[in-house]
C-alpha cells in the first residue's frame, strides 16, 4: 500500500518516513506538516534582510552580512519549552547611531520600504499607517501590504503599525494581533521606537526593510 503525502499528494513507499518529493514528514508522527496554514502566530526575526551596519540587503535567515560580515543573527531568547541547548552568542552588532530628537516639520523625503527587494512607495506624510486594506469596511492604510503578501494568514492586521516622523522616524505597533518586531524584539503596543535606515522590521510574518 502506498502512502500519500498530505502536503503535496505524491504517493510514497509504505516504509518512507519523509515524502520523496517535498520532504514532509509522513505517517503517525507527521505533526502539522502538510496541514492547512495554521493561524498566524508571532514568529521571530530570522536574521535581518538588511545589514544594520552597511545596509546591504541579505537573504532572510542569513547569519552574517554577505558584504561586511556583521552578525545578523538575533540574540536567542531563553528557550521556553525545550531542554537547554548551547546558545551561540553572536558578536555584538555595531551600535545603532544614537537617537537625537530634533524638532522638524516634514521629513526631507518619504521613507522607502522594501519587501523581498521590491519597493513599496509611500506617500509624503509625517505619519504612515501600515496594514492591509479591507474592502468591506472601506479601510485603506497609507501603506497597504495586501498586494505584497500582507494577508491575515501572514499575521498582518488591518491597522498594524505606523511610522511617525519626530525629527527622526519612529516605529510604533498599533496593538496588532501578531505584533511588530524590530531588532529581534517585539515592540510594546503604542510605544514609539526609533528606526534607522537599512533596518528590517517585521509585521506579523512579513519582513520589511526601511530606508530613508
Amino acid at each position: 500500500m502506498a502512502k500519500q503525502c498530505p502536503s503535496c499528494g505524491i504517493q510514497n513507499e509504505d516504509s518512507a518516513a519523509f515524502c520523496d518529493n517535498c520532504g514532509a514528514t509522513l505517517g503517525a508522527h507527521a505533526g502539522n506538516a502538510g496541514a492547512p496554514v495554521a493561524a498566524p502566530q508571532a514568529a521571530p526575526v530570522a536574521g535581518g534582510s538588511a545589514c544594520p551596519q552597511c545596509g546591504t540587503p541579505n537573504m532572510l535567515g542569513t547569519m552574517f552580512c554577505d558584504n561586511c560580515g556583521a552578525s545578523l543573527a538575533p540574540v536567542a531568547p531563553t528557550p521556553t519549552n525545550a531542554p537547554a541547548a548551547p546558545v551561540y552568542t553572536p558578536p555584538p552588532a555595531p551600535a545603532a547611531p544614537a537617537f537625537t530628537p530634533a524638532a522638524s516639520a516634514l521629513p526631507p523625503t518619504p521613507p522607502r520600504l522594501t519587501i523581498n527587494n521590491q519597493t513599496i512607495n509611500t506617500p509624503p506624510k509625517t505619519e504612515l499607517v501600515i496594514g492591509r486594506a479591507d474592502l468591506a469596511s472601506g479601510w485603506n492604510p497609507d501603506v497597504d501590504l495586501a498586494p505584497h503578501g500582507g494577508t491575515p494568514e501572514a499575521g498582518v492586521s488591518r491597522k498594524h503599525a505606523r511610522l511617525v516622523w519626530q525629527g527622526t522616524w519612529m516605529l510604533e505597533d498599533l496593538n496588532s494581533t501578531n505584533g511588530t518586531y524590530l531588532r529581534g524584539q517585539r515592540l510594546a503596543a503604542n510605544a514609539k521606537t526609533p528606526i534607522n535606515t537599512g533596518e528590517m522590521f517585521q509585521v506579523g510574518r512579513l519582513q520589511i526593510v526601511f530606508y530613508t
Binding site: M59, G61, G149, R205
Partner: peptide
C-alpha cells in the same frame, strides 16, 4: 527555523 511567508536561508 521559523514559519515565514517568505523563503529563508
Amino acid at each position: 527555523v521559523p514559519v515565514l511567508t517568505q523563503p529563508q536561508l
